[in-house]
């Protein structure tokens, strides 16, 4: 804390990127949903990679069926959602609203 009472914090490059495997925030909270792309399927698990290319093994049985190239939302090593909406909707952003 500085003498004038303000609080400063060093931020690295992570501050400008999305949730990745290297920085996923607080894993017990809801914001740690990391979108990962499936690289290789192995039964109920899949090798997935994030936007930086980092890879990890994710359990995908709760979002089956999935295929290589699909984007899944993962939390604590488990895929909890399919990010189907990311395909083809990115140009429009999040404009779609369900009434």
């Amino acid at each position: 804390m500085a003498a004038d009472g303000t609080v400063t914090r060093q931020t690295g490059d992570w501050a400008s990127v999305a949730c990745t495997l290297d920085h996923d925030g607080c894993v017990v909270c809801s914001d740690a949903g990391i979108p990962l792309r499936i690289v290789e399927l192995d039964g109920d698990d899949a090798l997935c990679e994030d936007i930086t290319g980092a890879q990890t093994l994710i359990a995908v049985e709760l979002v089956a069926p999935v295929g290589v190239g699909d984007v899944v939302l993962t939390h604590g090593g488990v895929a909890i959602g399919r990010a189907d909406g990311l395909h083809g909707q990115d140009e429009e952003g999040s404009r779609e609203v369900r009434q």
Partner: peptide, 22 residues
């Protein structure tokens, strides 16, 4: 006063039924 889904690119209205069953 309604429930609206701004995050529809990720959130299905009915949720993840396989996860709920588990």
């Amino acid at each position: 006063c309604e429930v609206e889904n701004q995050y529809s690119r990720i959130v299905p209205w009915e949720g993840n039924l396989a996860a709920l069953k588990s």
